[in-house]
């Protein structure tokens, strides 16, 4: 266990030294806070845009505070997800390509610790960034639109955070399987998009899909409860464990890029 902490501390140190621990949370805060502001100012922006025929009445749906929070989550679901995939895409492949994994894995280090320490670091920065960003979104929504119950916000953040963690885990898996970091990010984001679309198209057949997490998070915000939550959560957690196991297994077979 102490060895695992040594590995985790190294990942943590890397997050600090590379500046990720600063810029990722800042970007998430900006993402989370700007959505309520944009929503609030949208009528003015449109009115100010001019070149509307005289007397045009713009009918904008009235936004509720919960509705704005759902929009904020959508921001995290696109740009936020992209950033998580981008910062995780080289987690394993960069080490294998540069040869540092070969330096570390010839030491009596458990392959599972090597992977899960990286995974835990990914979860840490995701949780910090999303937590701060969503908190900022919550604060700005409360200031501009009225408050959303803390319980509903917290519940939805857990569900949505699980989705982010799931995609981050998939990125690390692809980062282990593939040589190219870009290919890993692309595959992970593609898989996430496919899963979301498939879940929307086949709601019955894929009622358990992790792709449903975003929908559940929105439902939690709007109505205070999300039905059919536990199958989705369990399947997601099982998938995360399976992805980690597959990554560890693959790394054990190919600790370094093999050269003849």
């Amino acid at each position: 266990m102490s060895q695992w902490f040594v590995l985790y501390r190294k990942e943590w140190l890397e997050l600090i030294r590379s500046g990720k621990l600063i810029w990722v949370p800042v970007v998430f805060i900006l993402l989370g806070a700007s959505q309520p502001i944009v929503s609030y100012m949208l009528p003015e922006i449109i009115a100010g845009a001019g070149n509307m025929p005289e007397g045009t009445v713009i009918e904008l749906p009235t936004l509720t505070a919960s509705g704005v929070m759902v929009q904020t989550l959508q921001q995290f679901g696109t740009l936020g997800l992209l950033i998580i995939a981008l910062i995780s895409m080289g987690t394993v492949s960069n080490e294998r390509l540069s040869g540092t994994s070969a330096m570390i894995l010839v030491k009596p280090v458990a392959y599972s610790s090597f992977v899960t320490a990286k995974w835990a670091a990914m979860l840490t920065i995701t949780a910090i960034s999303f937590g701060l960003g969503y908190g900022a979104g919550w604060y700005y929504t409360a200031a501009l639109f009225g408050s959303v119950s803390l319980l509903a916000a917290a519940g939805s953040s857990l569900l949505f955070g699980l989705w982010l963690g799931f995609v981050g885990t998939v990125t690390i898996l692809f980062s282990t399987l593939l040589r190219s970091a870009a290919a890993a990010a692309f595959s992970a984001l593609g898989a996430a998009a496919l899963l979301s679309i498939a879940t929307t198209l086949l709601p019955k057949a894929l009622a358990w899909s992790p792709g449903k997490l975003t929908e559940l998070a929105a439902a939690q915000l709007m109505s205070g409860h999300a039905s059919g939550l536990w199958p989705v959560v369990s399947i997601t957690i099982i998938s995360i464990i399976a992805a980690l196991a597959l990554a560890v297994w693959h790394l054990r077979q190919h600790p370094s890029i093999e050269a003849v």
């Binding site: 810029w23 800042v26 970007v27 700007s34 502001i37």
Partner: peptide, 28 residues
């Protein structure tokens, strides 16, 4: 929706602008 004075809106937006500038400066 309650009307919020533009002054108050500015106070809300200001920290975000500062944060954005900070990010830019760090990047530079």
């Amino acid at each position: 929706m309650d009307a919020i004075s533009s002054e108050k809106l500015l106070i809300l937006i200001a920290p975000l602008i500062v944060l954005q500038l900070l990010l830019m400066i760090i990047a530079l």
